[in-house]
Design a protein around this nucleic acid. Structure first.
Lengths: 199, 199
DNA sequence: GACAGTTCTAAACGCTCGTGCTTTTTTCCG
DNA sequence: CGGAAAAAAGCACGAGCGTTTAGAACTGTC
């Protein structure tokens, strides 16, 4: 009973890494089993199908994201500091993943965007929750007076996401060294535009 | 001699569409052949291998992009109008592709980002050329006095790209109706920040 | 209208895939 | 420690993959 859960978790950990590199579809059960020195059928028994493995991979990745990006930032004071912290932890997350296959959510987003099914549904849910989280942080910053009263917080969250997609693209595909600096500069511009006009 | 070229071209046209949906790796020669009502080996004979098919797909897509995005914009007057036109034709291109599998370059970018080989090389080349094109248009706008003298034109080009990635993501995965409006608004903000400060 | 050359088809190859079954090994509890 | 339950392995399956080869069906030319 206990050993099962343990390997189950170990499989998922590796699977998230591997899927970041080769994609959720590109990931093969045989290949994953070999990396873990496990038999293909032994691994398969943990998940009743490949598609449910994919869903579990996304759920495991979501848990990691919450732990490493959202939770640390929520300890920061409400308002702009927290908005900053969210962007900062997020950028760190992405930056660390760049050398090892990239962020799995970016990979899954383009891979699943027209592959209907539970995996896609799960991914959309995660993305929506994350955008809501960003928007909510911005909303608090508005309430605190750090941001303009008429700021479109959802557009703001979307812009943050675009920035990170741009960073990911430049850093991973083009291996652009200035990618991080550009992302940070663009974020500062976003903040500047969000703050109340100096009277 | 003539018939061969014809089907070759027809294959590529379909292949670009199909690859946008399922990816360059996900595309299968058998599946493509079936869509075109051609035998698998008959199709295969046109390309000596799958990887060279992938390269030809990217080249065909690049030609379409040049024709439909770059060329029309280059007829506009130098400076900000041309910068605007490039963004506008680009957004139109992306918008039209959203319902039919999305932009193949976006799909290929995340798919090939750590798959070394000729396909990846070709894609990087296309992306670099395109960023150079955007940067050059911005450089001209600087020369014309439309943009600030100290504008970092490469960062500007990168920001435009991030905007479009954001649009693509929001429109395709999240089916967000406001995606286009958000992209346009963010672009206007980009322009505003690029223009010289009113003295 | 026949002939050369191009273009397409049919069949088969070795391989890998996801997924079942059966059996062996390991784990855990009284 | 023994025996039930859980976990892993082994093996086989049908299908699909990229690719090769041999031959049939076209194409354009004189």
């Amino acid at each position: 009973m206990r050993k099962g859960e343990l390997t189950h978790q170990a499989i998922l950990e590796r699977a998230v890494q591997l899927a970041s590199r080769v994609g959720l579809q590109g990931l093969s059960i045989g290949g994953l089993a070999e990396e873990l020195q496990l038999s293909k059928s032994g691994l398969f028994a943990h998940f009743r199908s490949k598609s449910s493995l994919q869903v579990e991979i996304l759920e495991a990745a979501t848990a990691m994201f919450t732990e490493r990006v959202i939770r640390p930032a929520l300890t920061r004071p409400r308002g702009e500091p927290r908005v900053r912290a969210l962007f900062e932890t997020w950028l760190t997350w992405a930056k660390e993943l760049v050398p090892e296959g990239g962020c799995i959510f970016v990979a899954a987003a383009t891979e699943l965007d027209d592959v209907p099914g539970p995996a896609r549904d799960r991914l959309v849910q995660t993305e929506r929750d994350w955008l809501d989280c960003l928007a909510q942080a911005a909303r608090i910053a508005v309430a605190e007076g750090h941001f303009r009263k008429d700021l479109d917080v959802e557009a703001f969250a979307h812009d943050e996401k675009a920035l990170l997609l741009g960073f990911h693209h430049a850093a991973r595909l083009l291996k652009e060294p200035r990618a991080e600096a550009w992302a940070r500069r663009a974020f500062e511009a976003l903040l500047r535009a969000a703050r109340p006009v100096a009277s």
